[in-house]
């Protein structure tokens, strides 16, 4: 059978046209239901910053290490410690809620220490002061644990620093960030650092060429 030339042309045209149309991805973004994810797994949204798994890993590593500090664990009188974000300085390019880390260390340490350490809630000192003023004024009774002369002073305080070093290769669009979290335990009377540890990681990624 002789195929007319125009039909061959049409077939060629449709062939050329159909190929990319078939290959084109779906235009509608596909939504997904909210799901619970393991906090120790890497985030679905990836960047070079600190992710949940980093927070979990570093705080777990720190509290486990703190449980091995002789000055803390072998004292006949349990030492008093402040673990809050106030002197945990963020000098990095990381926007972060520092309390995520310090809260996790404090909670785990408190639960694991079994009374061998005492924790001072200095960030709640205002609330304590308010209550003590009410008791002093006789507007409320003394409660069941009795009165003390003052709020508890601390023997040690968790201090530290978050630092980052960012690097960018403008040719390739590669971004890398070295992050270093320094944790230290400061003697609040003598100023000695009795314990130190580091948590560090480096992440690198490369964005799509259209965003460079």
């Amino acid at each position: 059978m002789r195929i007319p030339l125009p039909l061959i042309g049409l077939a060629a045209v449709l062939g050329v046209a159909a190929a990319p149309a078939a290959a084109a991805p779906k235009l509608k973004p596909q939504g997904s239901a909210t799901v619970y994810r393991d906090t120790t797994t890497s985030d679905g949204v990836r960047g070079v910053g600190t992710e949940s798994q980093d927070i979990v890993s570093m705080s777990d590593a720190m509290f486990r290490d703190l449980l091995n500090v002789p000055e803390l664990m072998n004292r006949p009188t349990p030492p008093r410690i402040i673990v809050d974000p106030k002197y945990f300085r963020n000098e990095s390019s990381e926007i972060i809620d520092k309390a995520l880390i310090t809260d996790r260390i404090r909670v785990n340490l408190l639960r694991a220490a079994g009374g061998r350490m005492r924790f001072i809630g200095r960030e709640y000192a205002g609330a304590v002061e308010e209550e003590r003023a009410l008791k002093d004024a006789g507007k409320v009774d003394v409660g069941t644990t009795g009165r003390t002369r003052a709020q508890a002073g601390a023997d040690y305080r968790l201090v530290g620093r978050i630092g980052t070093r960012d690097a960018i290769d403008t040719r390739t669009g590669t971004t890398s960030r070295f992050s270093q979290y320094t944790f230290e335990l400061l003697d609040m009377e003598y100023g000695e650092i009795i314990w130190s540890n580091l948590y560090e990681f480096k992440k690198e990624n490369r964005d799509d060429v259209v965003y460079r």
Partner: peptide
């Protein structure tokens, strides 16, 4: 900022933007 930060290395729309069509 979260979206600026996220890496679109395997993003379908970025891939589309690179395509002919």
């Amino acid at each position: 900022i979260a979206r600026i930060d996220s890496v679109f290395a395997a993003d379908a729309n970025a891939a589309k933007a690179r395509k002919l069509w």
